[in-house]
């Protein structure tokens, strides 16, 4: 009898602990890419203005953390400037999360220098050689005899991963490359350093000089028609397919509306057709 009581108690307590809660629809949490950040923040501002009862938060911790937050279930939308890797998709499914991809816009990764830099353009091969350390001075590119200060995004960033895939072609970056944590920080570093070179999303060109790559200037047209060599889609990931009629559904589909496309264009990116 004593054992039966003890066993029943254990089963009852465990059962009680197995109760679970539902998620509220009036709160949307976003985390991830600093590149997608400006679009996410502008979308959030617009949506909250139209729906004052909805609270939307946007954190910018990099695409890698956007994927992690989706996998761990700590956000509703993971912002990413690269697609989820197969290993991340597997981790998500192992955690009971079905990641659904939404391509919200296109972006070009612009190569930027200080406004006083006379350089006009580079080839992808020259760019690779600057970042792998083979080209060390602007003199080797027809410029002044000064050492190139090479700035990159940190390795958790989707911008970094896109640059690594599209430019570095599996070659490693040189040990002297300086890593910074956001597109804005790269822009600031290049603005304050005459001999610097960096790469940022199209929305971060204010005050800096953007270079041609393979004789093509990054612009809305060249990104959309894919003639600019370093262009990419931007993503938002949700945990499963949002239910029609929910705020999450309306918010994630904002990119496809006239107002959403205007917001994307205003923040310096290229809306989807």
């Amino acid at each position: 009898m004593r054992k039966t009581i003890r066993n029943s108690t254990i089963v009852a307590v465990t059962g009680l602990l197995m109760a679970f809660n539902a998620t509220a629809d009036d709160k949307i949490v976003m985390d991830g890419s600093t590149t997608v950040g400006p679009i996410a923040k502008s979308f959030a501002e617009y949506y909250m203005k139209a729906n004052p009862n909805v609270n939307i938060t946007v954190s910018e911790s990099g695409s890698g953390n956007g994927a992690k937050s989706i996998i761990n279930g700590t956000c509703d939308i993971g912002n990413m400037s690269r697609p989820m890797k197969s290993s991340e998709k597997k981790s998500a499914k192992d955690s009971g999360v079905m990641p659904i991809e939404h391509i919200i816009a296109m972006d070009g990764i612009a190569v930027i220098v200080h406004p006083s830099n006379p350089a006009k353009g580079l080839t992808v091969a020259q760019l690779r050689d600057i970042y792998n350390g083979k080209i060390k001075s602007w003199k080797e590119l027809g410029g002044p005899d000064s050492k190139i200060v090479v700035i990159s995004r940190d390795t958790n960033s989707g911008t970094y991963e896109t640059f690594e895939t599209m430019v570095m072609n599996k070659e490693k970056m040189a040990s002297g490359v300086e890593y910074v944590g956001s597109n804005g920080a790269i822009r600031q570093r290049v603005l304050s350093t005459e001999n610097a070179i960096g790469y940022v999303g199209l929305a971060f060109l204010e005050g800096v000089k953007s270079l041609e790559v393979n004789n093509v200037m990054p612009s809305e047209d060249t990104v959309r028609n894919k003639t600019y060599p370093i262009s990419r889609p931007l993503y938002m990931y949700t945990k499963g397919r949002p239910k029609e009629g929910t705020h999450l559904f309306n918010f994630i589909n904002l990119y496809n509306t006239t107002e959403g496309k205007k917001i994307i264009a205003d923040t310096g990116f290229v809306p989807m057709n």
Binding site: M18, N21, N72, G73, S95, G96, V97
Partner: peptide
């Protein structure tokens, strides 16, 4: 049914 990995999830 379900995956007990993230908080408040069951299997």
């Amino acid at each position: 049914f379900g995956k007990a990995k993230n908080p408040k999830t069951f299997e």
